[in-house]
Design a protein around this nucleic acid. Structure first.
Length: 452
RNA sequence: CGGGCUAUGGCGCAGUCUGGUAGCGCGUCCGUCUGGGGGACGGAAGGUCGCAGGUUCGAACCCUGCUAGCCCGACCA
């Protein structure tokens, strides 16, 4: 993309409404625009990152054997009355009446609808296990939206639902989700720590929240610092392997790690003092096993091997897709702007032409642009007739992890400059070497996507 | 939902107390000189001052009502 043809309305000054860094930077980098309280339009740069995150979630869901569907945002109240949640959910649920006066609602989650789909079409244990998921807009009418998209009213969320014949099978699904979530977050450059959590209105006993440590997090968290040393890495995983998935769960959840909701001071004191940490975290996902709560209320049964109807065991699992943008920025920024992890960056590499109109500089930039594009990468070429300072400031603000700087001075010696946004370290090299290096950097990230 | 506050050009703000031609900085557009971290100079566009009513010869400013948004708290993925 050439910046002169793109739509990137960056702001030099901080909008007064934004309090936390991710909100400020998203507004300044021209990623979002508030439409009303807690509701945002996604501008090109923000939308691009949102889709990158969404792609990673889809890829990892597919890898775990889960199946994508799409359910409506506006639902009839009838199903919600059937489960009893129409009254339980409270003011947070946005209720709407259609022209006939029928009660409708804007979905805050979809257990009822997916259970309705299931009971209509699945009747045999042979069709299990089954996990259906969607990535869809949700609405929760927060009393007080804040922190930009981190706590908006409208938000984009992956919600998945597993259907299994037994508690044992459903717990495997639970473990499988935990594993797939660890992979998902790690691909986004995030460390999200599973912590024992509270189930809230979803119900159920088994539940973990995934938290990204950040000073601006809304939850107070207590953990054994040993959990921050855990990495999923590139280990091979067989999602059908019950013992292996259970092993990962054990590895990642055996140490103390809880939010303030479930914090137990006595247990926490059992952690060696030098490893006890109290911090704040942003919740970016949660997994639940809730058994037969919805299947019994809504009659979602299958016939087992003996021909007897039994209610299915279910769980639901969410990833806050739009919220992840905020969490990623909270965890990856400096005074000059965002620093995108390679896995989610809107463009792989920036190209700065220090002297637009200079024949050598223009030509070298065009050649770099073509070479990167041909290698399957998306560069963002700042071809504006701006001064160098302005170009650097914009590039730093929008946070592309790699930047190639091209100027007449360097070109006289046959070199351009490759700079890491994260470390600030620059290296001079030939344009060909710079392209090769950038391509090499992205090889694992592109491969991770294809493998899904 | 309690408490506090705000609304003036795309963004940040002054002007309101004390009514009298709507301003500043940044950004945007045009031009010239520039050119390796937001440069200089010259020109220009852009605002029914959140909405409705009232007071007044005259309202961004005073009065009444409404709406929207922000912050703290409780709540929450």
């Amino acid at each position: 993309m050439r910046l002169t043809r793109y739509f990137l309305p960056v702001l030099k000054e901080n909008p007064s409404e934004a309090q936390i860094v991710s909100h400020r930077l998203m507004l300044r980098a021209g990623m979002i625009k508030q439409a009303s309280s807690g509701i945002y339009s996604w501008l090109p740069l923000g939308f691009k990152v949102l889709r990158k995150i969404e792609d990673i979630v889809h890829e990892e869901q597919a890898r775990a054997g889960h199946i994508a569907i799409q359910m409506p945002t506006i639902q009839s109240a009838d199903l919600w009355r059937e489960s009893g949640r129409y009254d339980d959910y409270g003011e947070e649920m946005l209720r709407i009446k259609d022209r006939h006066g029928r009660d409708m609602l804007f979905t805050p989650t979809a257990e009822e609808l997916v259970t309705d789909i299931f009971r209509a079409h699945v009747s045999s244990y042979k069709d299990l296990p089954l996990t259906l998921y969607q990535i869809q807009w949700k609405f929760r009418d927060e009393i007080r939206p804040r922190f930009g998209i981190m706590r908006g009213r409208e938000f984009y969320m992956k919600d998945g639902y597993n259907f299994d014949i037994s508690k044992e099978a459903a717990l495997h699904a639970y473990n499988r989700h935990l594993v797939s979530y660890l992979r998902t977050y790690e691909r986004m450059g995030l460390q999200a720590i599973p912590m024992r959590a509270d189930s809230g209105p979803i119900g159920g006993d088994n539940t973990h929240e995934f938290l990204v440590l950040a000073e601006t997090g809304e939850s107070e968290v207590f953990y054994d610092s040993a959990v921050t040393d855990l990495r999923f890495g590139d280990r091979e995983i067989d999602y059908a392997d019950v013992a292996q998935c259970a092993g990962v769960l054990e590895e990642f959840t055996s140490r103390y790690a809880r939010t303030d909701e479930t914090h137990d001071e006595a247990l926490f004191n059992g952690v060696p003092e030098e490893r006890r940490r109290v911090a704040r975290g942003i919740e970016v996902g949660q997994i639940f096993y809730f058994g037969t709560k919805y299947s019994e209320a809504m009659g979602a049964t299958v016939q087992n091997a003996d021909g007897k109807p039994v209610p299915v065991h279910m769980g639901s699992h969410g990833i806050g897709v739009s919220r992840l943008l905020g969490a990623i920025i909270e965890a990856n920024h400096d005074d000059n702007g965002i620093i995108w992890p390679e896995g989610v960056t809107p463009f792989h590499c920036g190209i700065i032409n220090l002297k637009q109109g200079d024949e050598a500089a223009d030509g070298a930039c065009e050649a770099l642009y073509s070479a990167l594009t041909a290698a399957g990468l998306e560069p963002l070429y700042d071809d504006r007739k701006e001064r160098a300072g302005g170009k650097f400031a914009t590039m730093d603000l929008i946070g592309l992890p790699w930047r190639i700087t091209v100027g007449p001075r360097g070109l006289k010696n046959g070199v351009v400059e490759l700079t890491s946004r994260r470390t600030g370290i620059s290296e001079e090299m030939t344009p060909e070497a710079a392209v090769a290096r950038v391509v090499e950097i992205y090889v694992p990230h592109l491969a991770a996507g294809r493998a899904g």
